[in-house]
């Protein structure tokens, strides 16, 4: 199919075009054409580098996921700022938390690890050697199991819906 060969990675094409328009910061016909050209050529040339790319099952869910993460970042930022300012440093209970993963694709795990780090209060430290669990460092918690369940229910469940 010609369409499929011209656009091996349609979402990347759209993203590249939008990023190009953002970089030049002006929407003109010339810029749209140049951005569209980049959006076709770059995925075409780089296609051999991702042979096992996971398919996005539900691209619309990405928007919802992004908004939830954005909101969580704001809320958790305030919580951690309170911890830093008002709590004595030696009364902070930092904990390591093991989170077993149901996700299998490298891309999905990368997004989850990035999300865990960007939502303040938790930093993803390392994966297990076979990629079946992720080690998270939590700045302050009384209940490590609750943190684990929240990450699994709030983020991983949604990522499972997005990545096929």
């Amino acid at each position: 199919m010609l369409i499929k060969r011209l656009f091996p990675h349609p979402i990347l094409s759209v993203v590249l075009t939008l990023v190009w328009l953002g970089l030049v910061n002006k929407v003109t016909l010339g810029n749209v054409i140049l951005g569209g050209f980049l959006g076709i050529v770059v995925p075409f040339i780089t296609a051999p580098y991702w042979p096992n790319r996971p398919l996005l099952r539900n691209p619309v869910a990405i928007v919802g996921y992004f908004l939830i993460v954005l909101w969580d970042i704001v809320v958790a930022n305030v919580q951690v700022a309170m911890l830093i300012v008002f709590k004595r440093a030696d009364s902070l209970q930092s904990k390591w938390i093991t989170i077993p993963l149901d996700l299998t694709s490298a891309e999905a795990i990368t997004v989850l690890a990035g999300t865990i780090t960007m939502t303040p209060g938790t930093v993803s430290a390392t994966l297990s050697a076979d990629g079946s669990a992720i080690l998270v460092h939590c700045l302050h918690t009384d209940d490590p199991d609750a943190v684990r369940d929240e990450i699994k229910n709030r983020y991983e469940r949604r990522l499972k819906e997005i990545f096929a």
């Binding site: 093991t98 297990s128 079946s132 669990a133 080690l135």
Partner: peptide, 18 residues
Amino acid sequence: DVPTTQGEKGWAIYDDPP
């Protein structure tokens, strides 16, 4: 010092991949 992976393999820093 860190909790176990609850799986067959250890953490990637200390253990080799399968």
